[in-house]
Computed example of a mutant assay.
Amino acid sequence: MNLNYPLPRANAQTNAYWDGCAQGELRYQRCGQCGQVQCIPRSLCDRCQSSDLPWSASRREGTVLTFTTVYRAPLPAFKEMLPYVIAIVDLDEGFRVMANALSCVPPDALAIGARVRIGFKEVHGMALPVLESILEGAK
């Protein structure tokens, strides 16, 4: 993989999320006051502004909201990956994640509404969420 691949940078608010990815967990926050679920780490609840935001581990299963196949690289670092599939997945716990599909997920088998599982791929020392598999018997 290209060494110029743009990776996210962990910070004080996102460390727990990225540490979870490194351990094979897709973590999210659920407000202890109002129950609001948020995947983008924040110091306050998006709904009620509470700071009671414990982390939970997702089952990593969800439904494809939309997807696209990329044929033209937005940056030179992505050129060697072409073509690749990006999907937005509604996770069962109530948050969304955007992830590239691994090569073991055939693009012609992917569909809006398909049940999928999120996994992780190590890229230059960082575990990134990816579309790992289509769940059996689901569409």
Rank of each mutant, 00 (worst) to 15 (best):
residue 1 M to K: 11
residue 3 L to D: 14
residue 4 N to P: 13
residue 5 Y to C: 10
residue 10 A to Q: 09
residue 10 A to D: 08
residue 11 N to W: 02
residue 13 Q to I: 14
residue 13 Q to M: 10
residue 14 T to I: 02
residue 16 A to Y: 00
residue 16 A to C: 00
residue 16 A to R: 12
residue 16 A to T: 08
residue 17 Y to T: 07
residue 17 Y to W: 09
residue 18 W to C: 05
residue 21 C to F: 11
residue 22 A to T: 00
residue 25 E to G: 06
residue 25 E to Y: 08
residue 25 E to S: 09
residue 25 E to M: 12
residue 26 L to V: 05
residue 27 R to Q: 11
residue 29 Q to K: 04
residue 29 Q to T: 08
residue 29 Q to G: 06
residue 33 Q to S: 14
residue 34 C to V: 11
residue 35 G to P: 08
residue 35 G to T: 01
residue 36 Q to L: 11
residue 36 Q to R: 13
residue 37 V to T: 12
residue 37 V to I: 11
residue 40 I to H: 13
residue 42 R to E: 08
residue 44 L to I: 15
residue 46 D to S: 13
residue 47 R to P: 05
residue 48 C to V: 15
residue 49 Q to D: 11
residue 51 S to R: 14
residue 53 L to W: 02
residue 53 L to S: 08
residue 54 P to R: 04
residue 57 A to P: 10
residue 57 A to Y: 00
residue 62 G to L: 10
residue 64 V to S: 02
residue 66 T to W: 02
residue 67 F to T: 01
residue 67 F to C: 05
residue 68 T to F: 01
residue 69 T to Q: 14
residue 70 V to W: 08
residue 71 Y to P: 08
residue 72 R to T: 15
residue 72 R to V: 15
residue 73 A to E: 02
residue 74 P to E: 07
residue 74 P to N: 12
residue 74 P to V: 11
residue 74 P to K: 15
residue 75 L to I: 14
residue 81 M to L: 14
residue 81 M to S: 15
residue 82 L to E: 09
residue 91 L to T: 06
residue 92 D to G: 05
residue 94 G to F: 05
residue 97 V to G: 01
residue 99 A to N: 04
residue 100 N to Y: 04
residue 100 N to P: 11
residue 101 A to E: 02
residue 104 C to N: 10
residue 104 C to L: 02
residue 105 V to R: 05
residue 105 V to K: 01
residue 107 P to H: 08
residue 108 D to N: 07
residue 109 A to M: 06
residue 109 A to K: 08
residue 110 L to Y: 04
residue 112 I to V: 12
residue 112 I to H: 05
residue 113 G to M: 07
residue 114 A to N: 05
residue 114 A to E: 01
residue 116 V to P: 04
residue 116 V to A: 04
residue 117 R to N: 06
residue 117 R to D: 07
residue 117 R to W: 04
residue 121 K to G: 00
residue 122 E to C: 15
residue 123 V to K: 13
residue 124 H to V: 15
residue 124 H to T: 15
residue 124 H to N: 14
residue 127 A to I: 06
residue 127 A to H: 07
residue 127 A to L: 01
residue 129 P to I: 04
residue 130 V to R: 02
residue 131 L to Q: 01
residue 132 E to T: 03
residue 134 I to S: 03
residue 134 I to K: 01
residue 135 L to H: 06
residue 137 G to Y: 10
residue 137 G to I: 09
residue 138 A to M: 13
residue 139 K to D: 10
residue 139 K to L: 12
